[in-house]
Structures are given as structure tokens and as C-alpha cells.
Simulated assay, not measured.
Amino acid sequence: MEKNKLVLENISKMFGDGDTQVKVLDQVSLQVKAGEFVAVVGPSGSGKSTFLSIAGALLTPTSGRILIGGKDLGQLSPKHLNRIRLEKIGFMFQSSNLIPYLTVRDQLLLIAELTGKKKKEAERKADELLERLGLSHRKNNYPENLSGGERQRVAIARAWMNNPEIILADEPTASLDSERGRAVVEMLADEVKRSQKAAVMVTHDKRMLDLCDRIVYIEDGKLSEMSA
């Protein structure tokens, strides 16, 4: 097992052309080990979401290197990058981004189908996750019939469906009240330890930071460590 599941080395990101170029990230480096839950905090416009998008291979850095499970993403073809995103990374966003015409259970089964999982195995995994997250009684419901907290728990289950090595969460509690937000982050922290995943969470909510192993601060595109 790789000690560091996620490695970002000297990542810089520029947007724009010529004289209008803006440097959003400036020589940022981070290593996240198996079983480690890292929070990224900082003011609006500091580069947090760009950082997370690059970590998840959704954006290409202008310079620098990203390694997931020891593989340098810069050396992979677009096809292989898609497989990495589907199989190695679980994404969570501030809005649950559920598909409105799919039931709770089908949201999870779609992820398994995209990676070619056997139907019976996928159904067993989906039912196991929904039970663990207290959603079994909602498995045939559509997103419009769920509360905000339930929708975010479905998003967690979907992110875990393919047992990813890395979990990336962008403001996962933004649409939730304090109690439901705390419950969501506790679930994330528990899964990171239980399954030895590596997780990075971008958050504005300082009340959740005690659940994280490390806190890094980003401002003006630069990253620095904070004490938890």
C-alpha cells in the first residue's frame, strides 16, 4: 500500500492569456496519507476549489505534478484519467448533484455500471451503504422527496460506491444546518479511518475542523500548514 495516496508537487495554475493571466495557485504542494483527513481553509477566491479540482484530475495544472496511488497523472492518456476519476476518487460537492430522475438506489448503481461492476455485487454494495447511512427506507425515493441531509448522505454513499482510495469534498456542509453538517463530516471522518482512505475537504465551517487530522490554509494561491 502506498503511504501517500495523494501527492501534489509544486502545483501552479494560471488562467487567462498574455497580460491578463492570473496565477490562482503558486507552487502548492501537499501529501495525504492513507487514513488521513485534511481540511483546506481560506478566504473566498483564494484558490481552494481550483486546488481540489486539480487534485481530482478535473483540471490540468499549468505546472507541477499530481500522483494518485503512485501514478503520475501527467503521464496518463485521457482514457486512463477517466478510469482514475471513476475508480480511485470519490467526489462530494456542496450541492448533492443527484440526478433528479433516478431513485436513491439507482444513483449508486449507475456509478457501478459506469465501471463495469457485476449487477449482483453492485446491488449488494449499494444496499450495504444505504443501510449504513440510515437510508434503506429511502432507497426507492427520488431526490425531490428527500431532506437536505438525506440528499447529502446519498451523495456520500455515491462517492463511496466504488470504494475509492481518495475522497474529495468541496464544502459538503454548505447547504446543511449545523447538526446535519456535523453528522455528514463525522461520517466522512469515520470512513477515512475505517477504510484507510485519504480525504481532502474544502470548508468554510470552522466548527468541523476538530474532526480533521490536519488543516492547511490557502491564501493568494499559497498553501501553509495550520495546527489542528
Rank of each mutant, 00 (worst) to 15 (best):
L130Y: 10
I215E: 06
A126L: 02
S175T: 15
A198L: 07
V184H: 00
G42W: 02
G16L: 14
A155Q: 01
K193M: 01
V216H: 13
L86N: 10
N141H: 15
L108A: 05
H137F: 10
K33I: 03
I89H: 00
F51W: 14
E2Q: 07
R214Q: 08
G35I: 06
E150N: 00
R138K: 08
E87P: 04
S195W: 02
P61A: 01
C212W: 05
E144S: 05
N140F: 11
V24R: 07
E131N: 08
Q75M: 10
A55W: 07
L133T: 11
R158F: 11
L146P: 03
G35A: 08
K3I: 13
S29K: 08
L86Q: 12
L108V: 12
I166G: 00
A183P: 05
K48I: 05
N145M: 07
Q94K: 14
D72N: 13
A189V: 03
S63F: 00
Y142E: 02
Y142P: 04
L109V: 03
T115F: 08
F51R: 04
L176M: 09
V184Q: 05
T60V: 13
G116K: 01
V41D: 00
K33G: 06
A228W: 00
N162K: 15
Q152T: 10
D213L: 01
D213G: 01
A112D: 01
N163F: 11
K197P: 02
L86K: 14
R182V: 04
K23Y: 10
I111Q: 09
V40N: 05
L52N: 04
S178D: 04
D17G: 02
I167L: 12
N162Y: 12
L67Q: 12
D170V: 01
Y142H: 15
N97S: 15
R180D: 09
E219R: 09
L188R: 05
V22Y: 10
M14I: 06
K197C: 00
I156W: 03
D26G: 02
A228K: 15
G116C: 14
K88R: 14
A189D: 02
V200Y: 03
V184I: 13
E9Y: 06
T62V: 07
E150L: 00
L58V: 11
A155H: 12
E144I: 10
